[in-house]
Design a protein around this nucleic acid. Structure first.
Lengths: 353, 353
DNA sequence: TTTAGCACTCTATAGTATAGTGTGCTTAGC
DNA sequence: GCTAAGCACACTATACTATAGAGTGCTAAA
């Protein structure tokens, strides 16, 4: 059977209506739409065809139609009308983003919160690093008797520090010597490069401050390894409860629990090669718990080896047009913000507590 | 009417049973308990008395009894049997805690997660600072052309840093001069001490690196102000959905939303003068959304001017004995952990991204 | 090709009957 | 003066039935 223009129009109307009402859509409701000058019988025939083609489903014989996963897919790919963001919406998104954030994890939390607010759905945001960092520069500073501050600057221009307490005091010149040794031998190395042999060699040359070396190495390796990790935040989980398909507490709990348990960690993989906004309709989701749920995701650029992603989780019957529009605008605004040099303070280390 | 021993025993049994079953408790159920050698009629009389005294409530004429808020209060204060943690429980709690954590906010997240797991209820954890910090030491380090790393050590022994980018290069000796000036004039000051006049005076003496001063001051003041803030984490919100009293999605959503929106920020105030574990039964809660909900909280010591608190939110019909036992054990273990010096690495600044 | 008409299916809702649980009260026993 | 047994009464939860309403599919006519 061929998918005529009129069939597409009917399908779009069904999806639109179903998104609005969450109730199965009958033929009469379609005829009442403006721009639909056919009788309900005609629409019924078309709907019967669409059902046969797999785009619609019938909960039971005498109910209206509901879009199938394939129906949503077609809707998202071809039929959906672009949703235009109102000035109010863009303004509030922009305002929310402009608040400066200095630490990636805090930023991700904030972003997830805002996205969730903007879409009234649970939102995920994550920042993953591609390519590991190496150490660019070591510095050791005296900080009172028995205390030394280690400052490590990475190739990604992030700066981390650690307070080291010693049983004995070391002089400033001892530290200077050690710093020099560290900077000549231990910079520009991947975490695997910090072998016991290297450490031994450094300790032999490090002079009186040699006892510091193991602590320095341990901290550095740990830091480098953490560089490869992903920062993820989930926000607004409970907004899912507002959706009629989750009046069933058990169902809601299943989905929400899976959101919490980082079953989402495979989402970045899905986005790897994708560009722009990606929509995963129900069964297209890998995670079993999300088979009944749709995910909309989009990438944005943080710069400095960081790849950001924001996404939203909701019922398959979510307002894809609105959600994708907001998400895209969001991603764009974020990318722009990080491109502005005076705002791009992000990877500069900043410690709160 | 007097509250005889037997009445207390009946009340305790009713609360215990109701906690277990979440169903109104009838007189027959009580008689079937071991150690209850009275007929149902006698129990009925006692229950009628307890109802008259306000400790029990009747959903309707021919239903069993349910504890009132006053009933729970009495139960918590006097009747509750101490719950003994099993080895398994203490072990799993201890194991969970021993994982070292370096940053307060991350630690609070982790703690909230564990507490929620241990109690199967939503959990809150927070760390609030009493007494503001001041700057103990400034240090400026060159980090390649046009980049300077500012390291600030606070009186609390926390270390924070910031990468500053400059349009011009400054020499190491310029930075040394500036560091010295900063250390003589701007240490041991509260945030209000950083007046424009002081800043001007410092800039006059700072030599070629004077342009750095405004950035340094802004960052320092911001950091000091953040010291006073509270770190808070909520975890396991969706566990509330497992409780039968929250089968009603709307009710669950109301409570969960209030958990999210930091309506809990006044909880620390409640704990201020309290010692040990504190239980807030339903209407004793200040927050309107929690009137139907009980909160159990306890304090723990992080040291270094930080006060920790963990708490759990659940239906008034929660297992107070179990929850308070676990919470107290938790708090104790955490306090102990922070008291051990080799574990107490917490306030030593550590930056991830 | 479209549409009007109609019989049919299915659901949601209200109303009714019934079994079961629990109470309060009265009365009898210790 | 307690305690217990018995009984009428109250109320809920559950199943069952009837009914209205919405929507369909099919047929036949325009």
């Amino acid at each position: 059977m061929e998918l005529t223009e009129r069939k597409k129009k009917v399908l779009r109307s069904v999806v639109d209506l179903y998104i609005r009402t969450a109730e199965p859509v009958g033929s009469k409701a379609i005829t009442e739409l403006p721009d639909m000058n056919y009788s309900s019988a005609t629409i019924r025939n078309e709907m019967a065809d669409l059902t046969a083609m797999g785009y619609l489903e019938q909960p039971h014989t005498s109910a209206g139609r509901v879009p199938s996963a394939a129906g949503y897919r077609l809707y998202v790919d071809e039929l959906m009308q672009d949703y235009r963001l109102s000035m109010d919406e863009t303004n509030s998104i922009t305002a929310a983003i402009e608040e400066k954030m200095q630490r990636v994890d805090k930023l991700m939390e904030k972003v997830a919160k805002i996205v969730s607010q903007a879409t009234d759905l649970p939102a995920i945001s994550l920042a993953s690093r591609f390519g590991g960092a190496e150490v660019k520069h070591f510095e050791l500073i005296t900080a009172g008797p028995g205390s030394v501050i280690l400052v490590v600057m990475l190739t990604s221009d992030e700066v981390v520090n650690k307070l080291i307490r010693l049983p004995v005091s070391v002089t400033e010149s001892d530290l200077k010597l050690l710093s020099a040794v560290l900077n000549t031998t231990m910079t520009n190395l991947p975490p695997e490069g910090f072998t016991p042999e290297l450490m031994e060699r450094v300790m032999d040359n490090a002079g009186p401050a040699a006892s510091l070396v193991p602590v320095v190495v341990e901290f550095t390796v740990e830091t480098l390894q953490k560089q490869g990790s992903t920062n993820m935040a989930v926000a607004g989980q409970m907004r899912l409860l507002g959706q009629p398909e989750y009046r069933d507490v058990d169902k809601a709990q299943r989905v929400l629990t899976s959101l919490d348990e980082e079953a989402l960690s495979n989402l970045p993989a899905v986005m790897q090669n994708a560009n722009g906004t990606k929509v995963l309709v129900g069964p297209e989701n890998v995670a079993q718990e999300l088979k009944d749920t749709s995910v909309v995701m989009t990438k944005f650029d943080i710069g400095d080896g960081l790849q950001g992603m924001i996404g939203v989780v909701g019922p398959t019957r979510m307002d894809y047009a609105k959600v994708t529009a907001r998400l895209s605008y969001f991603a764009e605004s974020l990318s722009k913000m990080f491109a502005k040099p005076e705002q791009a303070q992000l990877p500069e280390g900043r410690e709160e507590e």
